[in-house]
Design a protein around this nucleic acid. Sequence first.
DNA 1: CGTTGGTGCTTCGAATTCGAAGCACATGCA
DNA 2: TGCATGTGCTTCGAATTCGAAGCACCAACG
Lengths: 167, 167
Amino acid sequence: MPDPSPSLDPVQLGAYFDLIEVTSLLRHAVEQQLREAGDLSYVQFQLLARLGDSPTGSHRMTDLADGVVYSRSGLTYQVGLLEKEGLVVRAPSLDDERSITVTVTDAGRELLAKVLPGHVEVVSGLLFEPLSRDDVQALAGLLAPVRDHMRSTPPRSAAPRRRKGGA
Amino acid sequence: MPDPSPSLDPVQLGAYFDLIEVTSLLRHAVEQQLREAGDLSYVQFQLLARLGDSPTGSHRMTDLADGVVYSRSGLTYQVGLLEKEGLVVRAPSLDDERSITVTVTDAGRELLAKVLPGHVEVVSGLLFEPLSRDDVQALAGLLAPVRDHMRSTPPRSAAPRRRKGGA
DNA sequence: CGTTGGTGCTTCGAATTCGAAGCACATGCA
DNA sequence: TGCATGTGCTTCGAATTCGAAGCACCAACG
């Protein structure tokens, strides 16, 4: 325990609060746009976007859940909705009989294409409006390492397998 | 329509995605810590923190909802829970008979003090670990204008009062 | 003063969310 | 091969969330 830091700098605090506030506001705005434009929730949009981005147009359930930081059961529910709308298809994976492969349909791609322009417009207008090109570059440069760090850091209770004297 | 921007730069896209991803992961981790440390949800923690920060220890319901970007009805529910736990108190406002003033109790402050160290630790370890002092400064400098811009921008459907020839 | 429109909060119903438990398949080892 | 453990997904119940509708109070105007 090298760093007992009892509190955060005012600067750190500000950055942290602004981070939370900015994403909350952005998410709220985007959510509204997506609802109006294509009757999609933000999660659903993220799922379609990820699938659309994939070379094969598909992903495993678990990878999707991990990717969008969502619970497994929640993902089952959301994919169920998307499938009912004909936007994705579920099929058992070839190599692993347990896992399910989700794939975007043409309808899914169409809807994605339909809502994307508005989505981009909202993000541009809210997030990028007050930032110069260099600012955006700097922001990206700051966030990427943080993202990598978070992804590589185990969730604090990684292996509490409750051995007798377990840490 | 000065800017038909059909898409976002790769750099913009990266910044946007990382922003969403980073806050999702951070929120998730923090939520878990708060649940363990004091059986609080993130919203509840935010509410207590805001009240604790206020010189008077109180805020109006509407201001709280606005502050944490939450629905009014959701706030009613959450404040109800907090009140049931004795962490806050509700009282009618003096000047405006309609509005309710929410105030932290001593128990609320205690609980806040109890969970804060762990909270700070999680945020430090996940968000600030890979950032230098200058990085944090830069991040804060980038996010503050964005926050101000978002707060000052009307929600896209500000006054669609549906006049005859409305926009 | 009475009426009209606006603001602040709560109640209500419907949709979403999560974790725990359950089931099916996969993998490692005797 | 046969068993123990782990992984992937779904079902289930409980808690949370939101928007619409409702109620009470305030402010502006005749």
